[in-house]
């Protein structure tokens, strides 16, 4: 056992491969993840605070924060409702074609975002299959914030379905039975008995969908149209600045995007951890 001689911990390592796997993992993480990320920090350190503040509060950029948050918020809420419905239907009912519908739920993760983007833009443009029907009603989806929300919603559909589904599957049948035998009506029983049980999974899935939507690029840019102050999302602003060789500006915006998504993910993880602890710590 040569490798265990390198053991850092207190206990003896029984299995081989510690040194090799540590070496491979650390090299990879340093070269692929950390080195590029430090270059962002390096670029930002060349800016003074006032320069940084000036760059991130540009009015056109502020408008893009608003559009991005609005789109991602609406997309996440839509997915909370749609995901809950799909999870419920797929777990509780049997119907022909169920397996296909179940498989279809993963399509947004399997389909490249650019393909989703051009397809949605084509469907909802004024002469597209759906746009043609909405146009006479005075509703336009393409090139408005509604289109942005729609594209964001599409790419994040699987998050809520796939987090709620396993929890619903594990729900003991007695829970239902008790509620129904005690005479609770469907809606009431669902809200008071089932929903609290699904709540952590639902919030986690919705949170993940929101984070994903904030950073989405490929699916959104085609249907958004990129009108300054109106339909420009924040990740597009980074792209625009890069095309103008404004590396400092692009890095400043990127730092905002990065910090926001990392903070949100951390919050989701902590919240989930706390909930799991409460669950294991004995329920009332």
């Amino acid at each position: 056992m040569i490798v265990s001689a390198f053991g850092l911990g207190r206990q003896r390592r029984v299995l081989p491969g510690f040194g090799l796997s540590l070496g491979v993992s650390l090299t990879f993480v340093s070269l692929i993840l950390l080195l590029p990320l430090t270059s962002l920090v390096g670029q930002l350190s060349q800016l003074s605070w006032s320069q940084y503040w000036f760059l991130i509060t540009d009015p056109r950029l502020l408008a893009s924060y608003g559009v991005t948050l609005l789109g991602a918020g609406v997309a996440a809420l839509f997915n909370a409702a749609f995901g809950l419905l799909m999870a419920w239907v797929l777990v509780r009912y049997d119907f022909p074609g169920k397996r296909l519908v179940d498989a279809l739920m993963d399509l947004p993760f399997a389909l490249p975002t650019a393909v989703a983007g051009v397809t949605l833009a084509t469907l909802y443009s004024s002469n597209g299959w759906i746009g043609r029907l909405l146009d006479p009603l005075g509703l336009s989806v393409a090139y408005t914030w509604v289109g942005i929300a729609l594209a964001m919603a599409f790419t994040s559909i699987p998050f809520v379905v796939r987090t709620v589904q396993p929890v619903l599957e594990d729900l003991p049948a007695e829970v239902d039975e008790a509620a129904v035998t005690l005479g609770a009506r469907d809606g009431h029983a669902f809200r008071r008995v089932i929903l609290p049980y699904l709540w952590p999974a639902l919030v986690t899935g919705t949170g993940l969908a929101f984070v994903r939507s904030l950073g989405e690029f490929g699916a959104v840019i085609f249907i958004a149209g990129g009108k300054p102050y109106e339909t420009e999302i924040t990740s597009l602003m980074i792209f625009v600045k890069l095309q103008e060789y404004d590396y400092a500006g692009a890095s400043a915006v990127a730092s905002i995007v990065l910090a926001t998504s990392l903070a949100l993910l951390l919050a989701i993880n902590l919240w989930q951890g706390r909930f799991i602890k409460r669950l294991h710590g004995g329920r009332p």
Partner: peptide, 8 residues
């Protein structure tokens, strides 16, 4: 965000 990945 993938754009940030490309940027770094």
């Amino acid at each position: 965000s993938p754009v940030v990945a490309g940027l770094v």
